[in-house]
Design a protein around this nucleic acid. Structure first.
Lengths: 148, 148
DNA sequence: TCTGAAGCTCCAGGAACTACAGCTTTGGAG
DNA sequence: CTCCAAAGCTGTAGTTCCTGGAGCTTCAGA
């Protein structure tokens, strides 16, 4: 049993990268900016990661995939380290981020409309148009003013 | 008439900024990266812009507002300088960009779903949850796998 | 023991600005 | 005409989140 616990397999950075889908350089970057704690080193100064590091990195990756900013992830990690009181703040961060995402979607949708209009004005045919797309860009008055 | 043409009013960078809604620093940046041609200078070496510059900058701003990359704008500007053959390439750029925007919307929508789920799991109440949000981030298996 | 892959540090770049420091020019008021 | 604050100038560094390279060292398997 004591031996078992000692057996917690340890891995170099490349293995961690492969396992989590985070690039080697990015892992080192996360360490540098304080998202991932510095791991033990081998005699030859190479990083050696254990299961706790893998879990933490998975958390980070998941949050990044969801679009959380690194700074917010730092906070979420701190919260996850201090169980109990975490909830409120984590909830606030998530809700704020959800709102950001929704705003971004709204903005992109209005761009989509505008681009659709511009891109289809001139179907990319021959010289005739001269060129509706470029004219649309040159003259904002043609817009439906969806974008600022 | 000759006098009239000479009267084309000329303005310093601040006026151009105000008129177009592009910040002073950004205008200088656009010059530096070759989007906006270097204007005449006053005796004291200050930039003096005319109507052509204002128009070109409006074009750039409009395209940026629509999310076109600076590199594509460079191309669009070149096309707008060589009338006639412009259409095909401009159309291609617009269509590609429209596709990018649509992809981005799709990705954000799947994030929105996931975040909604995560953010509402724990309503931010008291300590009871311990904390659903953080657990959701720690454990990807809870996801509906909409995101990679 | 040897060798090639993987690891190390440090630094530059990229996209599109933004901001500062430390100076000079401008243009209107007095 | 003189003053002075506001606006302009150049050059550099910072922002966010990585990514890639140079030039070196270590590791692990044959």
């Amino acid at each position: 049993m004591t031996a078992m616990q000692k057996l917690e397999r340890v891995m170099p950075i490349g293995a961690l990268a492969e396992r989590t889908g985070v690039k080697v350089e990015t892992i080192r970057y996360y360490e540098q900016v304080g998202l991932l704690p510095p791991p033990e080193r081998s005699e030859g100064n190479q990083r050696r990661y254990g299961r706790r590091h893998a879990e933490r990195l998975a958390f980070i990756k998941h949050a990044r995939d969801l679009g959380f900013a690194v700074d917010n992830i730092r906070t979420l990690l701190r919260l996850s380290d201090t169980p109990g009181i975490a909830c409120d703040e984590a909830h606030a961060i998530s809700v704020a981020h959800l709102q950001e995402v929704r705003d971004k979607i709204a903005r992109l949708r209005s761009l989509e409309t505008e681009l659709e209009r511009i891109a289809t004005t001139c179907s990319g045919g021959v010289a005739a148009c001269d060129c509706a797309i470029i004219e649309a860009l040159a003259d904002h008055r043609q817009c439906s003013h969806a974008h600022h």
